[in-house]
Write a protein that binds this DNA or RNA. Structure first.
Lengths: 192, 192
DNA sequence: AGAATTTCTTAATCTAGGTTAAGGATTTTG
DNA sequence: CAAAATCCTTAACCTAGATTAAGAAATTCT
């Protein structure tokens, strides 16, 4: 497993010297995940943020009635963590697990902050990544307020054509905010 | 009007020399807003981000049926902008206006980036502000997926006790995602 | 202060989407 | 490969919250 994908991602926003990128790499921990394996569970502290190299992860909560609600899918080239827990280093309420066998790099909050101090360009990199995530998250809030379930489903299909193919419908339902039964009903209507 | 509130906010996260803070202040533009005055409208580019010193602003969209959906309230000590448009400098789809007579400082994206280069500590300040906004936005996504309207209303009352007092109910309804009629019904039930 | 506008409430009716239940299709596991 | 588990679909029925309409209360404007 190589860190090419991650370094390429970083190079879109900042440029690093050989030394800097070696130092950064020295802080990463490689981890292989089997399908359904967790990297974080409720009430744990998210020590690290994960960069997905292959496979796919998801973050979600489980409500009082036992239903999943999916906050994020992370296909390759994405970062994922329980942001609340990661930045506060307090216990969170989110689960993160692998949807398929996956490879990730983990970076601890402690090391991240250390890198911010040693290599200020990383402050910029993560500032930009976080800005982009905020835009995506706010769009999702607006979509939840202003779109019907059917609009949200079609929007999802357009934005994430790759995910549509590899995700069970259950999980798409848990992301757009409907029951699997209702998603099934919506899909039947489209066909006609 | 003084920039004390803003400098105090900044000092919670980073420390600045006299020169640095003078330079930063030189880039701010003061602006007084009358109630209902816009700083951004749909299809415009959000050149600036606004820091609220007094009063209160809101960001929202208007859907095809003419209904408002409120994304954010910004009481004093908060930043507000159309994040998508601000970071991409492309036209956005959000309105931002003053709920009460307000005073704000405006910082253009161009000047912000200039400051990031001259004073790297600001990269850290905005990275932290953006991280916190992302946590809040993701919590709101989860609440939309897993809570009932009534739970979202009570949550809002607890989190923003100050806003409850000065906002018309219409606007609280447009934030939590229900009609004003249904909010009225929920409030009646609570009394009994 | 009085007219005009906006906001809030109530109540009847409606609907998008949930719930329950059951059978069939797929996938996973031993 | 068969058994078990998970996933998907369908259909009948149910409910949280929307819609419509109309009057009362509060604000804003002249």
């Amino acid at each position: 497993m190589s860190s090419d994908l991650l370094l390429h991602n970083i190079s879109k926003y900042i440029s690093l010297s050989e030394d800097e990128s070696a130092y950064f790499k020295s802080k990463l921990r490689e981890r292989k995940l089997k399908k359904k394996q967790f990297i974080i569970q409720e009430n744990q502290v998210s020590e690290s943020v994960a960069f997905v190299v292959s496979g796919c992860l998801r973050s979600y909560t489980i409500d009082d009635n036992g239903f999943d609600h999916i906050l994020q899918f992370a296909p390759p080239d994405w970062w994922i963590t329980d942001m609340f827990s990661f930045i506060s280093q307090k216990p969170g309420n989110i689960y993160i697990d692998a949807i398929d066998d996956s490879n990730v790099y983990l970076l601890s909050r402690k090391d991240q902050i250390d890198i911010f101090e040693k290599i200020p360009a990383f402050e910029k990199y993560f500032r930009i990544i976080t800005e982009n995530s905020l835009v995506a998250s706010r769009k999702r809030v607006m979509d939840g307020l202003s779109l019907t379930a059917s609009d949200r489903y079609h929007d999802f299909c357009q934005r994430y054509p790759t995910l549509i193919e590899c995700l069970p419908q259950k999980q798409i339902a848990a992301y757009i905010g409907v029951t699997p039964e209702f998603l099934s009903k919506m899909r039947r209507k489209v066909k006609k």
